[in-house]
């Protein structure tokens, strides 16, 4: 509940709650429509809803959408899987070993400050322009958040829980599986979730920057180069939808697995 519910900013509060969210999008659509209807501009960048729709139909029926999406998603998932696994192991190693943390941690924290996309040109030199370079880059994108959150999750397991484990004489394996990992799991999930998001972002970036092969990003770049606004808008919608879906899946998994927390992460 919002404790400050008394502020209205003078907006019409009479409209039913469920309808309020539609006002702005509808206004924007109306504006779009009016711009075409009254020909406010003759720029060919101003495409109609119909054109975008036609483009969507064409892309879908010709199989271009499927081909592009498949290529992008495949890379995304492979890259994420590699990056997440390495990140989990690395983060766990750092989390469990103070010595390792002291030795490798500072380097890790420094390297992670390098803006992700600055790696792309280097990777392109080391791995070429093909799929292997893209997957390597995606792995890197997923690696950092997963490693960081795994490390922090393990490090911030409350001392009380560790003491409980000591009191009940848990052996090393029980200590790990019954206490430490569950306690660290929310943070680890945050890391995986972030990794998924970053990997998808990096998928697009890789396709923009390493222009070879197929993918949804390449489709959009094609659209831009040929001034096909309808294709660009369609691409954006697809990118948004994929992102939304990945996010949604992660949210559902997270809520299911972390139900003991009594609060859905997705709410925060």
């Amino acid at each position: 509940m919002n404790a400050l519910a008394s502020f209205t900013l003078g907006l019409p509060a009479r409209l039913p709650k469920a309808l309020r969210g539609w006002v702005l999008p509808l206004l924007l659509l109306l504006l779009w429509w009016a711009a075409i209807r009254f020909s406010w501009t003759d720029s060919k960048l101003l495409v109609s809803v119909g054109q975008v729709w036609d483009r969507a139909v064409e892309q879908t029926t010709s199989g271009a959408l499927r081909e592009g999406l498949q290529a992008s998603l495949w890379r995304d998932l492979v890259g994420f899987a590699i990056g997440a696994c390495v990140g989990l192991l690395f983060g766990a190693a750092l989390g469990f070993s103070r010595l390792l943390e002291n030795m490798v941690g500072p380097t890790f924290h420094t390297v992670k400050q390098i803006s992700l996309f600055a790696w792309v040109p280097l990777i392109s030199v080391w791995f070429g322009l093909g799929d292997s370079a893209k997957v390597a880059f995606l792995s890197l994108a997923a690696f950092f958040p997963v490693a960081l959150n795994t490390f922090e999750g393990i490090r911030s397991v409350p001392r009380e829980f560790i003491e409980v484990a000591q009191v009940f004489n848990l052996n090393r394996r029980q200590w790990l599986t019954k206490v430490v990992l569950p306690a660290a799991s929310p943070s680890i999930f945050t890391g995986l979730h972030l990794g998924l998001i970053y990997a998808w972002l990096a998928t697009l970036g890789a396709e923009y920057l390493l222009v070879a092969g197929k993918g949804i990003g390449n489709t959009m770049i094609d659209g831009r180069e040929n001034f096909w606004m309808d294709l660009v808008v369609f691409g954006m919608i697809v990118v948004g939808a994929v992102g939304f879906t990945l996010n949604w899946i992660a949210g559902v998994v997270e809520t299911r697995l972390l139900a003991w927390r009594g609060r859905a992460v997705a709410q925060y």
């Binding site: 945050t190 979730h193 972030l194 998001i197 970053y198 972002l201 948004g240 992102g243 996010n247 992660a250 949210g251 997270e254 992460v265 997705a266 925060y268």
Partner: peptide, 12 residues
């Protein structure tokens, strides 16, 4: 701190 989490997704 509200962690960067689902709602902030795709902020990038």
């Amino acid at each position: 701190d509200v962690r960067l989490s689902p709602n902030i997704s795709f902020a990038l």
